[in-house]
C-alpha cells in the first residue's frame, strides 16, 4: 500500500485498507474514505474504522490520578468508566490506578496534550503500540458484538461512558461505549499483534448487518 509506506508509522491493519484517501496523522496514515463504498458513509450503516495510528497514551501508578489532573484531564470516578476531556479526548480508567487518553476521533489532527510524568509512582504506558484501536459504528453494535463476545453489551447493561474489559473473538480487549454526533459507537482496543485477525473477525460478524470497512468521513 503506497499510502502507508509514505510514513514511518504503519497501522497494524494497514494491508487491509483500500482507501481512496488517506490523512497524515502522527507520522502515519488514517483512511478517510474507503474505495469500496460508493454511497456516502453515515453513521446509519454498520462500519469498522481503523484508528490505530491515532495518538493515545496512558499513565499508571499511585500518583497517576494526580498527574492526570495536572494535565487538565478528567479522572473517571471508578475503574471501567470513560469521561470526555475538554477537547473531546476519551479518558478511560482501566484499573484503580490506570488511565488511558485517546484522541478525539473527530479531531485526530489535534493530538491530545501529553506530558511526561514528573511525579514518582506515575509511569507512562505503551498503548500506542501494544494495542490497536478499531471503532465500530452503526445501529447494530450490541448485536454484532453478541456474535463474538460473551458479555451483554446492550445499552441497558453497557451504557454510554462505560468500559468493558473482556474477551472478544477469544482475544483480550477493552471495549469503550462512547458517542459521536449523539450516536453510539464502540471503540475496541486490543493486542496489536492480533489486529488483522480481529479486523477480519469483526467484519465477518458485521456481514449480517451490512457492515464494511469505513474511513474517517463516516464520523466527521
Amino acid at each position: 500500500m503506497s499510502e502507508s509506506r509514505q510514513f514511518q508509522r504503519r497501522s497494524f491493519v494497514a494491508r487491509k485498507l483500500e482507501g481512496s484517501e488517506f490523512l497524515n496523522i502522527n507520522d502515519g496514515a488514517v483512511m478517510v474514505k474507503a474505495l469500496a463504498n460508493a454511497s456516502d458513509n453515515q453513521v446509519q450503516q454498520s462500519g469498522l474504522i481503523d484508528l490505530s495510528v491515532a495518538q493515545r497514551f496512558g499513565f499508571r501508578g499511585l500518583n497517576a490520578a494526580q498527574h492526570m489532573q495536572a494535565c487538565d484531564y478528567p479522572v473517571p470516578s471508578k475503574p471501567n468508566l470513560c469521561d470526555v476531556g475538554r477537547n473531546g479526548e476519551l479518558v478511560l480508567r482501566l484499573g484503580e490506578t490506570e488511565y488511558w487518553v485517546l484522541s478525539n476521533p473527530q479531531e485526530l489532527e489535534q493530538t491530545p496534550n501529553y506530558q511526561a510524568p514528573v511525579l514518582d509512582k506515575c509511569y507512562s504506558l505503551f498503548c500506542q503500540n501494544s494495542h490497536s484501536w478499531l471503532m465500530m459504528v452503526g445501529p447494530s453494535l450490541a448485536e454484532t458484538m453478541a456474535k463474538i463476545c460473551g458479555v451483554d453489551l446492550s445499552s441497558s447493561q453497557f451504557p454510554v461512558g462505560h468500559v468493558c474489559q473482556t474477551s472478544v473473538a477469544r482475544i483480550n480487549a477493552v471495549i469503550v461505549h462512547h458517542e459521536i454526533n449523539n450516536k453510539s459507537v464502540f471503540s475496541i482496543l486490543s493486542d496489536s499483534a492480533s489486529a488483522v485477525y480481529l479486523w477480519e473477525a469483526l467484519l465477518d460478524a458485521m456481514t449480517e448487518f451490512n457492515g464494511c470497512a469505513m474511513g474517517l468521513s463516516a464520523i466527521t
Partner: peptide
Amino acid sequence: GRIFDPVRRTAMHD
C-alpha cells in the same frame, strides 16, 4: 462452526 483461532503476526509479517 465460526470457531475463533487467534493468530498473531509481527509488524514485518508482510
